[in-house]
Amino acid sequence: MRTGFVMECHVVIYCDGCGDTYTENTGEGICFDTVNQAVGYLNARSAGVGWAYDGDKVLCDGCQALARCTEHGHTFPERRISLRRLTKTTHSRTCTVCGISETEVLS
């Protein structure tokens, strides 16, 4: 039986791209007993949460989206949002894959 403070080792999943911790509802990193357990869990859940392990790197959904846009270009909707402020008009749009926005000043 263990009592008091006991130091134990565990595995936590971090994104190789940005360093974010894999979390679910609580915002706390999940602790696994082994790397194999963490890989199995991530592979079983990855379709629903967007994290992926390719055998070498772990990437969060945001880093995967950024990598996709870097390789293939951003996917912007045709419709732009126009804002008119005093003397300047701007058009803006947001990539539907990675969420980056682009703004063009017209006048």
Rank of each mutant, 00 (worst) to 15 (best):
S82P: 02
N36I: 06
T21R: 12
A52C: 09
E78L: 10
S107Q: 12
T87Y: 04
A65E: 01
D20I: 02
Y41S: 14
I100N: 15
G29D: 11
A65W: 00
G27N: 14
N36L: 09
K57Q: 10
E102M: 13
D56P: 00
M7F: 02
R79H: 13
A44M: 12
C69N: 03
D33N: 13
Y53W: 12
G40R: 04
T70E: 13
E71H: 11
R80L: 07
T75W: 04
E102N: 14
I30S: 03
S92H: 05
L86M: 11
P77T: 07
H91W: 04
D33I: 14
H74E: 07
Q64Y: 04
I13R: 00
S82Q: 09
K57D: 10
G27Q: 15
G4I: 07
G48K: 10
G62C: 09
F32M: 05
A44R: 14
C15F: 05
L86K: 15
D20R: 02
F5V: 09
N25M: 13
Y14R: 13
L86E: 15
F5C: 07
Q64M: 06
C9S: 12
D33G: 08
D20S: 09
E104Y: 12
N43E: 14
T94W: 01
N43Q: 12
A65P: 04
T23M: 12
A38Q: 01
T26A: 14
Y53R: 02
C63R: 00
P77I: 04
T90W: 04
T87I: 05
T75M: 09
S46K: 02
L106T: 12
G62I: 02
C15L: 05
E24S: 14
L42H: 01
G55S: 05
A47F: 01
F32I: 06
A52Q: 11
V6P: 00
V58Q: 01
C15S: 08
K57W: 07
H10Q: 10
I81S: 11
P77C: 06
L66G: 00
L42A: 03
T26L: 13
F76E: 00
S82C: 08
G27V: 12
E24L: 15
H10F: 15
F32A: 03
T94L: 04
S107C: 11
A38L: 08
R84H: 11
G48H: 11
L86Q: 14
G73C: 06
M7I: 02
V49D: 15
L106H: 14
G19V: 10
V12S: 10
C15V: 04
D54L: 05
L42K: 01
F76N: 00
A47D: 04
P77Y: 04
I30E: 09
A47S: 05
G19C: 12
R45F: 08
E71A: 14
C69Q: 03
L83G: 08
R85T: 13
T70F: 08
C60F: 02
T3A: 07
R79P: 03
H91Y: 06
G29I: 08
G27P: 10
F76V: 01
